[in-house]
Amino acid sequence: MAQWSLLSEAIAACVHDGDIVALEGFTHLIPFAAGHEIIRQGRRGLALVRMTPDLIYDQMIGAGCAAKLTFSWGGNPGVGSLHRFRDAVENGWPAPLAIEERSHSDLANAYVAGAANLPFAVLRGYVGSSFEQMCPHIRSVTCPFTGERLAATPSIRPDVAIVHAQKADRKGNVLLWGILGVQKEAVLAAKRSIVTVEERVESLDAPANACILPSWVVDAVCLVPQGARPSYAHGYYERDNAFYLRWDAISRQRESFRAWLKEHVLETADFVQYLRVLGSGGRQEAVR
């Protein structure tokens, strides 16, 4: 059964140094607050998994939390590069980052395989590409019925999955909607899971077939309103596109990144305070 917890307690209990950790959310519902708390608590040596690393993994990689990244598209959506990710891969700063590179289709299939308790995913993929030569985790199997050669890749089975959702009820049943990405699969593939939510409600009042994570597949539920900012939460707030643009400048240099991280994450107590500092910083910049 999910326990309603403080995010700091949930991270302390569920995320350990060296864990395989997946924070999922495809552009939508990205668990920024949880990522920040992992940075604050100084986790090291994490094997991060995420289809689209986005700004949150750029921050975690730049903060030194990660030893490895499994991913399928590592850019700043609509803007350009993830500079901290690139600095880690190209220059080993702040620490060398091993990468396990996949395609979206592969990772999506690999989460499904993980959720289904299978050791590998099978897909019609990568044919003709350089992946099979360069990436040892991308192999093939022959179909025992037709003889067709298909790509085979290891399933994703995180130690802990973390997702953000719109609502949870008193018992900790979680409801999410809109663009769902691989959140459900990530939670079901993981040994432990944390869900941060916008709202705690008496009853979910969800229609049949809604995307619900029952309380008993979740370890901790944490009330963190706006916990997906600067990404968005469908029905609650819009994506902060301006921040995604600003991140390009903040993250481009190590020093400006470090100063930002210190002021906004390392020296704030929680996400509420982070949003306050971010808001005041935004105003100062507007005046300038």
Partner: peptide, 12 residues
């Protein structure tokens, strides 16, 4: 020399 974003959905 330059790390680009990667595959995304394109290979499939």
């Amino acid at each position: 020399k330059v790390r680009l974003p990667g595959a995304g959905g394109a290979p499939e």
